[in-house]
Design a protein around this nucleic acid. Sequence first.
DNA 1: TGCATCATTAGTAGCTGGTCCTAATAGCTT
DNA 2: AAGCTATTAGGACCAGCTACTAATGATGCA
Lengths: 209, 209
Amino acid sequence: MRTERGDWGLSRLARRASKSERQRLLQQLVREDPLLTDQMLARKLNVSVQTIRLDRLELGVPEMRARARQVVERVQGRVKSLGPAEVAGDLIDLELGVGGISILETTQEMAFAKTGIVRGHHLFAQGNSLAVAVIDAEVALTGSARLVFHRPVRVGDRVVAKATVKRVIGNKSIVRVESRVDGEKVFSATLTIFALDQQDLEAQKGGRQ
Amino acid sequence: MRTERGDWGLSRLARRASKSERQRLLQQLVREDPLLTDQMLARKLNVSVQTIRLDRLELGVPEMRARARQVVERVQGRVKSLGPAEVAGDLIDLELGVGGISILETTQEMAFAKTGIVRGHHLFAQGNSLAVAVIDAEVALTGSARLVFHRPVRVGDRVVAKATVKRVIGNKSIVRVESRVDGEKVFSATLTIFALDQQDLEAQKGGRQ
DNA sequence: TGCATCATTAGTAGCTGGTCCTAATAGCTT
DNA sequence: AAGCTATTAGGACCAGCTACTAATGATGCA
């Protein structure tokens, strides 16, 4: 690499690197700071703006504004939580203290735009809502849970969740939820749910457990 | 051009709102999507581009490129003046492959009407989204999770979720999420997340790695 | 009724950060 | 000397702005 061609090596500013070296550097620079304009890059790499443009073209590096847009879209798209009123699925069967079934029609908004795969928390939302609904108490709160996502769910899939109360120990219930698409298991969870009276709640407002 | 003043009933946005209402909407729109240009806003709000410019001037809303730049800078970690009351339910810090922080402002719709306690799956949704966002891959999917709800969260609480990548084994990452309200832990989870890197997608981006 | 003020729209000039194209030049290599 | 690559220059054009001037219409109000 360092076998120079010509020895104009002692330029007054930084020595100019070879083309490939410069392009490697360019990629690194824009990765570190996507907001660098061609002009800034030209100054840093000690070449003309036109050369930077040619390099970007060759490397397929998009212009600054597009790079910024990409970052924004990535951030915005990724932190999309549950929609406002969206509480998970239609109850189609419910036997208090025993079990229940709900159905969730999946839509675009629930999925990653890129892949059409439904975000995991929507499956949990369905299961959690159902599990809480199944508990025969004034107020029921989820204490802990273990989840397994067996297979991706795609937009348009109809998810059928089935909850069964496995055990009741005092005010604590263990609920098992299994969700299926076309009979195939896609999600399962075991939840610990606490049944509370209003008094318990009042007590909790002040003190910590 | 538009001689009439009373064409109510077409669409919600076809009608022209009052100036203050329009400006309120404008602020909301740019907060939801910082990449909207003046032209797009003008169409959405059914006024001219010039009116949008005047509104932005009055409201101190910066131009689109500046808004994009702000988001990028915030995400890059060169946090400027992260205002306390400003962000609601979005990402405030993100370092790919390492960790991130998001804030969720809880609302009525997220809670049980009876108790004002936020439904557990919203906390998981926040944590899950954040965990997926920190993974440095084109596509990331949650494989399994263990959740603990330490204390109920009430409507109005501001939930700060912090995610940390604990371990990476092949395409599998273990991410720990802890959510707090006023410094007190309300929720925690350990998630296993799978990174699905699509080679062709990478190649399409110009050989950047 | 007339006049002032506000809201909205139109249009101009100029800026940044680009794209796309044509050319010229420098420095090898054959 | 001819051919090649790399680099630089310049012009025409574009989107999305800023900053300014000006016209028009509705509204208030004395």
